[in-house]
Design a protein around this nucleic acid. Sequence first.
DNA 1: AATAGTTCTTGATGTAGATTAAGAAATTAG
DNA 2: CTAATTTCTTAATCTACATCAAGAACTATT
Lengths: 191, 191
Amino acid sequence: MERLKNHIQSHIELSPEELRTVITSFKCRNFSKNEFIQYSGTKSLDLLFIENGLVRVYYLDNQGIEITIHIGMDDMWVNNLYAFISEKPSNVYIQALENSTIYLIQKRQLERLYETIGSMETFFRLKIERAYLALQDRTLNQINSTAESRYIEFKVKYGDIESKVPQYIIASYLSITPEHLSRIKKNLLKN
Amino acid sequence: MERLKNHIQSHIELSPEELRTVITSFKCRNFSKNEFIQYSGTKSLDLLFIENGLVRVYYLDNQGIEITIHIGMDDMWVNNLYAFISEKPSNVYIQALENSTIYLIQKRQLERLYETIGSMETFFRLKIERAYLALQDRTLNQINSTAESRYIEFKVKYGDIESKVPQYIIASYLSITPEHLSRIKKNLLKN
DNA sequence: AATAGTTCTTGATGTAGATTAAGAAATTAG
DNA sequence: CTAATTTCTTAATCTACATCAAGAACTATT
């Protein structure tokens, strides 16, 4: 759990004892390729940290088409913050795309931490602030950029991932059809 | 400042003394119709609560077209959370659409409150959580609904506002052109 | 290696909404 | 009250992307 420890300590300062309290609030789970971590339709009150692996978050739109909203790798959180905050049944699936080791913390545990270790509330306030920025960045990018430039940015940001997951997942992350992505790639090769 | 007091007390419990401390951290400002409250290009580290009035938040896209991201009325916050959190120069304008009374708090004051009154960090964590949900709702709505049904929802949510602001502002809030909104309205009358 | 299941590509056609242009209506200012 | 400005509407054309369909290229299974 080195990555999780480093991650937390890169944001706030904790005494060795506090760090132990925090760490023991997390549970470790291993998921194999294609296994589901969370299901749509159930309450999802865990936050998930990827110690290592590859994970995606997606939902089904009103036509039943998969829309990928997030892809996460080592050292990243893959949360369904909407379900976590609202406590409504989740509308997303979280699925391991490779064998993955996940540390998870339940909302109840987290709230207990808020009370015993004040800086943990700060830590998660900062987390949510970052998530808000990321969501807005992605939203504006979606509106202001063409599918082609979104694809180019995706490759810069995620690099190697393209070879590990089916292209239709990448298409759904870019909010386009697989056909359209196919055409974009063909077009980029020409130039 | 009755509305601000009620607003805060509807979220957390404060002693009369704490409430006084909180309230005195805010400053009151009056803005007249069309006056700007915040400008693009400057750091914007204030949060704004509308005691009464009508306010909009917008930015200029890469073609210089105004995109309205939020319209606020009595009892609502009209923050540029992106600039507030990231502390980067703002890319949005915040403008009074009617004469408005605003209570504002500076980030520095707010952070001082976090230290002296613990529940204020909780209050703002909750605020940011709500803002996250609202942003995601709006994003998904944008993707999954047609312009027409977004317009219908807008009228339900904002009712009277339509008569108070130019239609091109509403169009930009709906992420469509004024021409297209004009057609939508014509179409709805037919049916 | 042969079969079956996925996934990817290509082409034809369809559509929501943008863009451009220009006149009509409503506001505001002198 | 008239002129000037802003806002709204209508129509013609255009564009990014979706949808549908069907074949091609992988991948996995026996």
